[in-house]
């Protein structure tokens, strides 16, 4: 398993638009992907579960990937997080 932690610096937190992008990307990989926040861990391929978390500004989250293409998946998600300026 590989993982990476982020502090969400975007003012609106993990907003609907970046959520959609991340989930769309996550679906392309066979690895299990998840987002851990506030002691709960949700499936990164589930838009409803991720949005329901309501991750706010300044929250610390961790993206976890587990499976054959875990490295590539984490790398791709990481790229979106920075491109969308969710974290710095």
């Amino acid at each position: 398993m590989v993982s990476k932690a982020y502090t969400i610096t975007a003012k609106e937190g993990l907003h609907a638009r970046p959520c959609s992008l991340i989930v769309t990307e996550a679906m392309k990989y066979t690895a299990d992907l998840s987002l851990a926040y506030n002691e709960s861990e949700k499936n990164l391929k589930s838009i409803m579960a991720i949005m329901a978390l309501g991750v706010p500004h300044n929250a610390t989250i961790e993206i976890r990937a587990n499976g054959a293409d875990e490295e590539a998946a984490l790398e791709a998600i990481n790229a979106i997080i920075y491109a969308e300026k969710l974290a710095q």
């Binding site: 959609s20 989930v23 769309t24 679906m27 391929k45 589930s46 838009i47």
Partner: peptide
């Protein structure tokens, strides 16, 4: 179009 991309994500939501 983005609205319907979001709808497709909901439709294919594995948790749901």
């Amino acid at each position: 179009a983005a609205i319907f991309q979001a709808h497709l994500l909901v439709l294919n939501d594995p948790d749901w």
